[in-house]
Amino acid sequence: MPWTTVQVEKLGNFFITGDHTGDRVLTYRDALHEALDQFLARDPRVFIMGEGVDDVAGVFGTTKGLKEKYGANRVFDTPIAENSMTGIAAGAAMAGLRPVLIHARMDFLLLSLDQLVNHASKWCYMFGGKVPVPMVVRTISARGWGSGAQHSQCIQGMLMNVPGLKIVAPATPYDAKGLMISAIIDNNPVLFVEHRWLHKTTGYVPEEVYSIPIGKGMIHRKGEDITIVAVSYMLVEALKAAEKLREEGISAEVIDPRTLKPFDEKLLLESVGKTGRLLVADTGCKTGSVASEIAAIAAEKAFHVLRKPVRRVCCPDTPTPTSDVLEKAFYPTADDIFAEAVKLVKE
């Protein structure tokens, strides 16, 4: 069993309520699998490529069995050449196909930045809108079990600075399916940010095909005293923190932006307008993070309503350590969000 599977299997199921109702419960992983399965079935332009996508593990189960169902032309393994594979997917998109390219670690995405940033993301603008590049790049961040500095990065903040690239980071099974479908039908390169610790999260997911608009966040929990914006896996920690804050008499509003770029500023500003306090939790290192950008939006557009300075809860600016002791010190949890929120509200 791959080491990350060992770690994730140890996690308890986190059942996400509030974003959808129904009686059909799926894991995040199975929701992704269902979206891919349904779109391979209904759109012949869709295909999946990436390192190991057709092996028995099937990218943590998200592509398992799809090669057997749709054939080796639609779901195929690639050489370990992230940059060119990204460009090859982009070229196929330019010729009218809808590739879903998978980097099983976000760290590997760094090898592909020339094709992603210099080419795929700029092509539409650089050629006056004549050649769109409709592609999805799935990228998965790991955490824990000694993943270390090169197998656990969350560099979504770095990629916020790339014009032409859309970035989504769903945190719930419902959003994972809906945003995967939106990403496939979008006519632009969409970076689909996943976190390994979300794959086992469960929630209500309808069987039918549905999409979630790119650029729209949602309020997961309504509150009055403080706004907590949580990116990707930090939603799980933020929801736990909000429950603890309630016991402390603090009413926290928890927002999941779902799309990081273009960002849903309206939702953020309305919430901060109500609470006057903002805490942003991100899975990445602090400097230049998505949290930094959200804090900057608040400083620019909500300064007059802020009652306290904005707080960011992120990883520190160090590479990820491998020692389990240092790892524990490195990653922020619900307790950190709780402690910062209490300071913001009570001090």
Binding site: M85, G87, I88, G91, M94, A95, H119, W123
Partner: peptide, 21 residues
């Protein structure tokens, strides 16, 4: 379908249109 000013940058793209064919 375009040209790239990054040396070698167009090679994967053309390989990709060939994959599409």
């Amino acid at each position: 379908l375009g040209s790239s000013a990054i040396v070698g940058g167009n090679i994967p793209l053309g390989t990709g249109t060939a994959l599409a064919s």
